[in-house]
């Protein structure tokens, strides 16, 4: 398998699956993807959501709302780019 093909395959993966890493993935990107994946998984698993709701004494809908909101920017603003 030659290099060009490998690259194009990787690009395909990156476009298809959000969060697939590449050689220049920054710590911030990695963290943000991980956090979004985690939050999406929380929302998908209803027992987990009710577990949080019980601990926080909130309604499950409020917990879901909070988590979905957090997905927009889970790790704060991105760091300044060093060019």
């Amino acid at each position: 398998m030659d290099r060009a093909n490998l690259n194009s395959q990787l690009e395909h993966l990156q476009s298809k699956y959000v969060g697939t890493g590449h050689a220049d993935t920054s710590k911030y990107e990695w963290g943000v993807n991980q956090a979004r994946d985690t939050y999406a998984s929380y929302v998908g698993h209803y027992p987990m959501m009710s577990y949080f709701a019980l601990a926080e004494n909130e309604s499950i809908a409020r917990v879901k709302f909070n988590i979905t909101e957090k997905m927009v920017q889970p790790c704060g603003p991105p760091p300044e780019r060093k060019d």
Partner: peptide, 27 residues
């Protein structure tokens, strides 16, 4: 799996039963 971009989280049906939308948390 309950993944971020794999549909399954949201379902919406057309009230006349002509189509159904299945959505994920993202994308």
């Amino acid at each position: 799996g309950c993944r971020r971009i794999v549909p399954g989280q949201y379902l919406a049906t057309d009230p006349k039963g002509r189509a159904v939308m299945i959505g994920s948390m993202e994308k």
